[in-house]
């Protein structure tokens, strides 16, 4: 479904050039759950940003369902993000001035075939708190709103950057359950980046990143349930 070849990303930090990603090849298959593991600075987030069309590679190409993404064409990148990709961020990044329902609506209003915001919030178990503002929700609830926002437009691809990074264990598990459910019920291809190796058990495949490259890819014979994961 998504194929990256030779993805390289370097940043200029003042005088020095830093290579965040060094020629990564990656394939994501329809409907699978992938976990990208690795310590901070290993290039996980950079890779996720490239896959989601948030950033452009210094070198390399990305094909989505056989079509090459044109990184120089801002409008086509915007269309790709609008129609194909959903994001979940570590710090939720909800719009503080909008309620849970409105935070979802701001995305469904520009999507082609979205779920109603109410259904999306129901899916993450927040049917009862739709009219609360982010400041009135707990961290886990905020993250679930963020997931609802990401899945409400029925994306092909759900990209999650440390979705449980800011949460305690039990809240984190609730969020993982929601992600697992979305992947199984809606068949959304899901990529989760985390430095928490335990989460790898949920995935079909686990990719381990090190110093800007994918060091190892492991396939799980059986996906664990979120309730089985412990850390």
């Amino acid at each position: 479904m998504l194929a990256g070849r030779g993805l390289t990303r370097t940043y200029r930090m003042g005088e020095v050039e830093v290579a965040a990603l060094r020629g990564v090849d990656i394939d994501l298959r329809d409907g699978e759950m992938v976990v990208l593991l690795g310590p901070s600075g290993s290039g996980k987030s950079t890779l996720l940003n490239l896959l989601g069309g948030l950033d452009r590679p210094t070198e390399g190409t990305l094909e989505y369902r056989g079509t090459r993404l044109l990184f120089d064409d801002d409008a086509s990148l915007t269309r790709y993000r609008r129609d194909c990709v959903g994001f979940v961020f570590q710090f939720y990044n909800l719009i503080p001035s909008l309620t849970a329902r409105e935070n979802v609506a701001i995305v469904t209003e520009i999507a082609r075939d979205p779920l109603p915001p109410e259904d999306a919030l129901g899916l993450v178990g927040l049917g009862g708190r739709m009219d609360h503002f982010p400041s009135q929700l707990s961290g886990g609830e905020q993250q679930r709103v963020a997931i609802a926002r990401a899945v409400a437009k029925r994306p092909d691809l759900l990209l999650c950057d440390e979705p449980t990074g800011a949460l305690d264990v039990s809240t984190g598990k609730v969020v993982l359950e929601v992600l697992d459910r979305v992947n199984r019920e809606l068949g959304t291809t899901t990529a989760i980046i985390t430095h928490n190796a335990a989460i790898g058990g949920l995935a079909d495949r686990v990719m381990t990143m090190h110093d800007g490259s994918i060091a190892r890819v492991a396939e799980n014979a059986r996906r664990m349930g979120p309730d089985e994961v412990t850390w």
Binding site: L54, A75, T78, R81, R82, F87, F89, N93, I95, A111
Partner: peptide, 12 residues
């Protein structure tokens, strides 16, 4: 960050 999120979700 809000601008970033909106752009991530496809706002032009």
């Amino acid at each position: 960050e809000q601008v970033g999120v909106l752009k991530a979700f496809g706002w032009g």
